[in-house]
Computed example of a mutant assay.
Amino acid sequence: MRLARQALYTAGATLLAAHPALAQTAEASAPTADPKLPLLWFLLSTLLLVMLVFWVFFVALIAWMRPQLRQLYDLPTVHNTWSGRVLGLLVGDARLVQGEVRDELLDHDYDGIHEFDNDLPPWWKYGFVLTAIFAVCYVSYYHVAKTGQLQGAEYATEMQQAALLIAATPDDPNKLTTYTVLNTPAELSSGKSLFTTNCAPCHGASAEGKVGPNLTDEYWLHGGEVNHVYKTIKFGVNGKGMVAWKGKLSGKQILQVASYVLSLQGTKPANAKPPQGEKEAPAKTLASR
């Protein structure tokens, strides 16, 4: 009993001594807030408040000085100048944006349709000039100097960069496998069973083609080499109705199905679907689509 009490006392003292160290460890591991963040929000809020006060003061000043600004705007020496048109925006005259509206009829008369002699809006004219300048710069940069990439080259570069971001793993659709065809009766029998269960509803019991293409001819939509067919079965074809069998069949089962389809080349089943895709030599036609 005495030894047990001494052991308990020792354990309690050890825990009490370790408590401050544990507290310090917890405090050290706790995430600390960035001290600069509150200062940044304070500066942004202050800036927005100053801008709001300035805008209110500016609007109030314009409203208070509007009669004097109108008198200044009506002066002949000011009215038709560039600065006068800017001043006109403050007193309600939008000539700078809308252009001159003279409402003067021209002599043109087309089936009762009359034409007014009005200027094009300045914003339209400025936009047209900027468009012409942009077109000259674009042609010079992309087609004359050939400094920038056109859409096709830019797309190819982005696809190469995207391919580098995908890890080269067995589930990488951009990395082609290096399998060979399975030729043993047992493997082909397993492939036939899997094909009958999973593939026949779309490709037919003899692979003659139904919704999916005929798999017994020399024509292939996505490549007839065994590894191309393996890839098509595993990852499917988006938008074409070919589902991805990855996760439903193992890698070996997919290879068994591809090898079985290879064994059907040239069997010419009844009611075969017309060829689809590109023709490949029988020596290269080693797998399914």
Rank of each mutant, 00 (worst) to 15 (best):
L3A: 08
L8N: 06
Y9E: 06
T10M: 10
T10P: 02
G12E: 07
G12D: 06
A18M: 12
A18L: 14
H19D: 01
L22I: 05
L22S: 13
A23R: 00
A23P: 00
Q24T: 00
Q24K: 14
T25Y: 00
A28N: 06
S29M: 02
A30Q: 08
P31L: 11
A33M: 11
D34V: 04
P35K: 13
P35W: 14
K36V: 09
K36W: 11
L37N: 06
L37Q: 14
L37Y: 08
P38H: 13
P38I: 06
L39M: 12
L39A: 15
W41L: 15
W41V: 05
L43V: 04
L43H: 08
L44F: 12
L44Q: 11
T46K: 07
T46A: 10
L47D: 03
L47Q: 10
L47F: 08
L47A: 12
L49H: 00
L49S: 04
L49N: 01
M51S: 08
M51T: 03
V53Q: 01
V56K: 09
F57N: 03
F57R: 11
F58K: 13
F58I: 01
A60S: 12
A60D: 04
A60W: 15
A60Q: 14
L61T: 09
L61K: 12
A63W: 15
W64G: 06
W64L: 15
M65H: 07
M65F: 08
R66Y: 07
P67W: 13
P67Q: 09
P67F: 13
Q68E: 07
R70I: 15
R70K: 13
R70E: 05
R70S: 05
Q71I: 03
Q71K: 15
L72M: 12
Y73A: 10
Y73E: 09
D74V: 00
L75A: 07
T77R: 12
V78H: 05
H79M: 09
N80S: 05
N80V: 01
T81Q: 07
W82T: 04
W82I: 06
G84L: 12
G84M: 08
R85E: 03
V86G: 04
V86T: 02
G88K: 10
G88Y: 06
G88D: 04
L89S: 04
L90R: 06
V91W: 08
V91Y: 09
V91N: 02
G92P: 03
D93F: 02
D93W: 01
D93K: 14
L96W: 08
V97D: 01
V97H: 03
V97L: 15
Q98E: 10
Q98Y: 05
G99W: 00
E100K: 09
V101R: 13
V101H: 09
R102S: 06
D103G: 03
E104H: 05
E104M: 10
L105P: 00
L105N: 10
L106W: 00
D109W: 10
Y110N: 07
G112N: 06
G112P: 04
